[in-house]
């Protein structure tokens, strides 16, 4: 009896949470009228190029950071590196550094490499992400050492071992890191504002700046449209995501 009652309570709680989560979304949706959607999708020709550009950058960041993180995790775990705990501590610390801290030096760095006002300026700084590396390492910890040992007996090529033994087991984590880095890349605001000046290189996330006051009602429609790729991505990869993040243990 208590169990039944408990179950109802739990369901009510979930309902309340769902409503709280949905309320602002619904408010946003209601403010976006069909006419807005129409004008964004059909009339305003800036939307599609910006959309695909944002998607492109986010995908590049996702893939790039996965590659970098996998390599780093492999190196850290199997490469017999000393003071791994120290490195992990530093990674955690770097993850917490607020963006404003490094904004100006990054700008100067990019400028001296003459990468400003180019797509690379948006992608490169995000490739080495402490979050991704940390996550990948934690996951890789769950990969048994024996498989690696066995593969090492077969071949001396790191690449082969990577592809045949490690990567298949890391699928979940790779998906997780990709989804998170994709979300980061899609929603970044400060970097495009400061590192890039050309209008064509500014992704959708800095929309507030470029929309004139006449078009401000389009913000809601664009917001909904931005949500869609993320939803799709999350929908497809939810299982992997859950599994990947579950392995955050020592």
């Amino acid at each position: 009896m208590a169990k039944f009652f408990g179950k109802i309570l739990i369901h009510i709680f979930q309902l309340v949470i769902a409503v709280c989560l949905l309320l602002p979304v619904v408010l946003t949706v209601t403010k976006a009228t069909l006419a807005d959607f129409f004008s964004v999708l059909v009339e305003e020709f800036w939307f599609y190029p910006k959309f695909w550009f944002s998607l492109g950058i986010a995908a590049a960041i996702g893939i790039g950071s996965v590659v970098v993180a996998v390599l780093a995790a492999v190196g850290l775990k199997f490469g017999r590196i000393k003071h791994v705990k120290g490195i992990l501590f530093v990674l955690l610390l770097l993850m917490m550094m607020p963006l404003q801290t490094t904004l100006l030096p990054n700008y100067i760095g990019l400028r001296d490499l003459s990468l400003l006002d180019k797509t690379e300026a948006l992608i490169l700084p995000m490739l080495a992400s402490p979050f991704a590396i940390y996550l990948m390492y934690q996951y890789m910890d769950s990969v048994p050492y024996e498989g690696f040992e066995a593969a090492r007996l077969e071949t001396g090529s790191v690449f082969r071992i990577l592809c045949s033994v490690i990567l298949p087991q890391m699928r979940a984590c790779i998906a997780a890191v990709f989804v998170f880095m994709f979300a980061e890349g899609f929603n970044m605001v400060e970097q495009p504002l400061y590192f890039v000046k050309k209008e064509t290189l500014k992704p959708l996330s800095v929309l507030a700046e470029s929309l004139t006051s006449a078009n401000s009602h389009l913000i809601f429609a664009v917001g909904i449209l931005c949500m869609i790729p993320m939803l799709l991505l999350y929908g497809f990869y939810e299982e992997e995501l859950t599994e990947g993040l579950g392995h955050l243990k020592a």
Partner: peptide
Amino acid sequence: KLKLCILPAAAGLLLFYFLPFLKV
């Protein structure tokens, strides 16, 4: 070779996190 795998990550972190912090 395995140790070298960390290189891209290390380079990125150095360039975009450590060096900037030192500059700051």
